[in-house]
Design a protein around this nucleic acid. Structure first.
Length: 907
RNA sequence: GGGCUUGUAGAUCAGUGGUAGAUCGCCGCCUUCGCAAGGCGGAGGCCACGGGUUCGAAUCCCGUCAAGUCCA
């Protein structure tokens, strides 16, 4: 816990604030109001702003955002453009969940300077944690804008800290016309993601408008400061992290019953109209229902309260029945949620998320399906793309409008996909329901979980259609948590590799085509890795494998078989021991390998850029790997790449090769590079460091640390080999560049030549000939089948004639030359039809037994006969009582086998 | 990144190691003025692909490819 000193700011003292302890929750807060006894935070205080706005006039989202940003701009903050809602620069989160997320991890850790300092931003954020409450609580949103001002201080240079932060906040609120007595600043220590610090929540009218965090601690084992069981110490860089809820500010300015009516009244009205739901907030009685709902939902933790309890509570407080309340409120809850979800989708798809079954794409699909379900419940019969388009046209992002063609296509496809899933689901449910109905059991929970978990059928839908079919269903309230429980939580913690000390000068950037260099051995590790003070050898990284080469010391040559980076040091794995610390060595790069990598690497950039041109701007690199003779590039795309598209990409990439474009590489300060080129720089992930290397190949500009050729002409040729879908929404393109491309084409030619050699036709006629052969082969197989049947019939007469009578049975035991199992089966089956008891054997070691009607009546079993016979051949067999087959490897003992089988027929 | 599931006739699916099936659709004939329905007959299968186990694999095991779905 933080002491009072942490919060006793000059501002509070100057302004006559008092520190009080909330008489309900016991937490400390600061107020100007001498009468105030509670902290201002629900449930200690209820919402009071509904119907009586906090601010003196209504603001729209755009007005409020502009007000905020210009307020801070006028007070020395630089205005920063928003970041995408998909956090491509992070590998720990998929979506941007807070404004500070824009600056993690490198700015907050101090490795990279901030784009401006101090700065102000309004960052769209997406949080799906409270998805179920959206629309119901009156305040929950999946998408919100976090307005913020951030300051990145260091011990050497402090810009401002707590006092000015709170002062600015108070001034902002006063400027909007808030009653100064209404605000409380509630002390609330903050901790998360390995950092912590004091923080205050800004409460007005029961609504938390902002949180001001003073992040100045980091988690360190054995650190001197303890918070919630963790040990922390002070950081050298300490950060003002504020978060002002744009939507809540707007809500506070309107005092409408729900946040939804405050922030997108037009769309709420429009969707309600389309769904035929009457929504007239001018009717005070009607408005009061939603107001009361929001007030009470604001007081409770929705995780702990069931919807039913809450409804009952609200119904009681406004003097109506829960059923009546539900009828009024439920359709609107869906309208609110649909409007919220489609806004969320506008951001997700606008910023380039491709719906998928993994990662951020899954989250997009989750929201799409939820929205579709809600729309269906509302009876809204229009494409979801229409609603998303409405959202996009209300947002001020011009580049999204041009992207809308793609977004519409994606949404249409998702709509179809979901319809198919539900259709398939219906059949599965039907089958399952019939099964359990027959057993006179309820459809068990395990089955419901399987339907949902494995086939994506929501339990509510499954239950409804199962009950339609007259089956009963077991469906507990905590269904989803039971599904979650089924999973095993196994989070493997990544082992932090020890960083090898030392700093190696990287020569390969300056002089990418130098082959030899001189260096001093700084150290040799126990595992035989040499650390050099400078090197031309490229360490593995960015999907490019390590260079190979040699290190020579006084005529002694050591082969370098691997190169890795560790911290600032480059490690060279040698094929044998002997090199010593302090040795001078002459290094040499295997240029063949280097060049092959460089060709594939530059080619990767070209293929990527071509894919973007052919498929659309939604294409992002999702991974890449190069080698000497192949490269592969994974890109985000919402459907399978067609053959035609693949060819177009290949042609486009080769045109760029032929244009002989120079490859331009330069180191730029990160913030400058980002300003110039935007986030599309980070196709291969975000590198750390103040300076980043920017590689430019014509229109393709990427942050990239790999080695490249200096001109696209050096690539020679690019041959795309294949594409595969590695995930829903991610396509992999495999290709070869340079010599490898030529060799790849030659290999294909060889295959073609071999195939046409086998069929003895020219390559052009291969497809036709292959098809003809295949058809003929099929026809012949059928013909053979037919002939065998005929043959069996023809033999029937002679075999039946040779039947011996014994024990009142007609018995046929015969060897049948080299007949195969099909022939034996057919003949035996036919004989059995004529009431024979049959055992047929072939010289290939196959046996078939069949028992006719009389035999069956006597209890003879074909399986038993075959077992006895096959045993003699050293094998086994089995089958049904009327027909069985078997065999064994000792072909020579066929006679004995037949005799043994004959014996078995006696029993 | 992890979990679960599925690839069998044009479609939907049965088929738990022993001669590959049903329903719908398709074709022909019968019935009918014609259509629908009905009756009889028929065509249509590398049981996703490649290995393995076995006397024998659609079925069991391994791998590959394709697809669905839930989660972090």
């Amino acid at each position: 816990m933080f002491s009072e000193d942490e919060y006793r700011l000059d501002f509070f003292v100057d302004e006559g604030f008092q520190r009080k302890k909330c008489e309900k929750c016991g937490k400390f807060f600061w107020t100007r109001d001498g009468q105030r006894k509670t902290c201002g935070d629900p449930p200690c205080d209820p919402y009071t702003f509904i119907g009586s706005p906090i601010f003196k006039r209504e603001h729209t989202l755009d007005e409020m955002r502009e007000h905020y940003l210009s307020f801070f701009q006028a007070r020395g903050h630089s205005r920063i453009k928003r970041y995408p809602v998909v956090a491509r620069w992070r590998d720990d989160i998929y979506l941007t969940i807070a404004s500070i997320a824009d600056f993690q991890p490198f700015v907050t850790s101090g490795q990279v300077p901030p784009p401006a300092n101090p700065l102000t931003i309004s960052q769209p954020c997406i949080r799906l944690d409270d998805l179920d409450s959206v629309g119901r609580s009156g305040r929950h949103l999946t998408t919100f804008e976090m307005m913020a001002h951030h300051v990145f201080n260091t011990r050497e240079r402090e810009i401002y800290w707590k006092d000015r932060t709170v002062r600015l906040c108070d001034e902002l609120l006063a400027g909007l016309g808030m009653d100064p007595l209404a605000v409380t600043y509630k002390e609330n220590p903050w901790a998360g993601g390995g950092n912590a610090g004091p923080s205050v929540e800004v409460m007005v009218g029961g609504l938390e408008l902002a949180t001001l965090v003073f992040m100045d601690l980091k988690a360190v084992a054995g650190g001197p400061i303890q918070i919630k069981g963790e040990c922390y110490e002070k950081m050298n860089n300490y950060i003002v992290d504020t978060g002002y809820g744009l939507e809540r500010f707007v809500w506070a300015s309107t005092g409408s019953p729900t946040i939804y009516d405050a922030i997108f009244p037009h769309l709420v009205g429009k969707v309600a109209d389309l769904a035929g739901v009457e929504h007239d907030l001018a009717d005070p009685e009607y408005a009061e229902i939603f107001a009361q709902n929001a007030r009470l939902a604001g007081m409770v933790d929705l995780d702990e309260y069931s919807m039913k309890d809450l409804r009952a509570m609200i119904a009681k407080s406004i003097g109506t029945s829960p059923e009546k309340l539900e009828r009024t409120i439920e359709p609107m809850e869906r309208v609110y949620a649909v409007v919220d979800h489609t806004r969320c989708l506008a951001y997700m798809l606008g910023d380039g998320i491709i719906p998928s079954n993994v990662k951020s794409g899954y989250l997009a699909r989750l929201v799409i399906r939820r929205a579709l379900r809600l729309m269906k419940e509302l009876g809204l019969d229009l494409p979801i793309a229409d609603l998303v388009e409405m959202q996009i046209s209300r947002l001020d992002y011009p580049d999204w409008e041009e992207r809308f063609v793609t977004v519409r296509e994606i949404l249409t496809q998702e709509e179809q996909k979901y319809a198919e899933t539900l259709e398939k689901g219906k059949r599965l449910v039907k089958k399952s329901a019939e099964h359990f109905k027959k057993l006179e059991q309820a459809v068990p929970l395990a089955e419901m979980i399987a339907l949902y978990d494995t086939h994506g059928i929501p339990p509510e839908i499954a239950k409804a259609s199962a009950e339609e079919m007259g089956a009963t269903v077991e469906l507990p309230d905590n269904f989803y948590s039971l599904v979650a429980k089924k999973r095993i939580k196994a989070e493997a913690e990544e082992e932090a590799k020890a960083v090898v000390p030392g700093k190696t000068e990287l020569l390969y950037y300056e002089n990418p085509f130098d082959q030899v260099f001189e260096a001093t051995v700084l150290d040799v590790t126990a595992e035989g890795w040499a650390v050099l003070d400078r090197t031309l050898l490229y360490p593995e990284g960015g999907g490019q494998p390590a260079d190979h080469g040699t290190l020579e010391r006084a005529g002694q040559e050591f082969a370098v078989v691997d190169v890795q980076k560790s911290g600032d040091a480059v490690l060279h794995k040698l094929d044998r021991a002997g090199l010593q610390k302090g040795d001078r060595v002459a290094g040499k790069v295997d240029m063949r390998r280097r060049l092959a990598h460089a060709r594939h690497h530059t080619a990767t950039h070209l293929v990527h850029d071509s894919a973007k041109r052919i498929l659309g701007r939604h294409v992002w690199q999702a991974g890449a790997q190069k080698s000497e003779d192949r490269a592969r590039l994974d890109i985000s795309h919402y459907r399978r790449i067609t053959e035609a598209e693949l060819k177009a990409i290949e042609l486009e990439a080769n045109r760029r090769v032929m244009e002989l474009t120079a490859v331009d590489t330069q180191f730029l300060p990160r913030e400058e590079a980002e300003k110039l080129f935007g986030f599309e720089l980070y196709q291969g992930g975000v590198p750390p460091g103040k300076q980043i290397r920017v590689v430019r190949v014509g229109s393709d500009i990427e942050a990239c640390a790999g080695t490249h050729v200096t001109n696209t002409g050096m690539i020679g040729a690019i041959k795309i080999l294949r594409s595969e879908r590695i995930q829903d929404g991610v396509e992999r393109i495999e290709f070869a560049a340079g010599e490898a491309a030529v060799r790849a084409v030659q290999e294909r030619d060889d295959l073609l030549a071999q195939a046409s050699g086998v069929l003895r036709v020219p390559a052009e006629q291969l497809p036709r000939t292959a098809e003809r052969f295949f058809e003929e082969w099929k026809g012949q197989a059928k013909e053979i089948e037919r002939l065998k049947e005929e043959l069996a019939k023809a033999r029937l007469r002679s075999l039946a004639a040779e039947a011996e009578e014994a024990d009142g049975l007609k018995i046929v035991v015969q060897r049948m030359g080299k007949a195969d199992i099909d022939e034996l089966l057919k003949a035996a089956a036919l004989l059995a039809e004529q009431d024979c008891t049959v055992l047929l054997g072939s010289e290939t070691g196959k046996l078939v037994a069949a028992v006719g009607k009389s035999g069956l009546e006597k209890g003879l079993k074909a399986g038993a006969i075959i077992k006895a016979a096959a045993k003699a051949l050293g094998g086994g067999g089995g089958g049904r009582p009327e027909l069985a087959q078997g065999g064994g490897p000792d072909v020579a003992k066929l006679e004995e086998a037949l005799a043994a089988g004959r014996e078995a027929m006696r029993a």
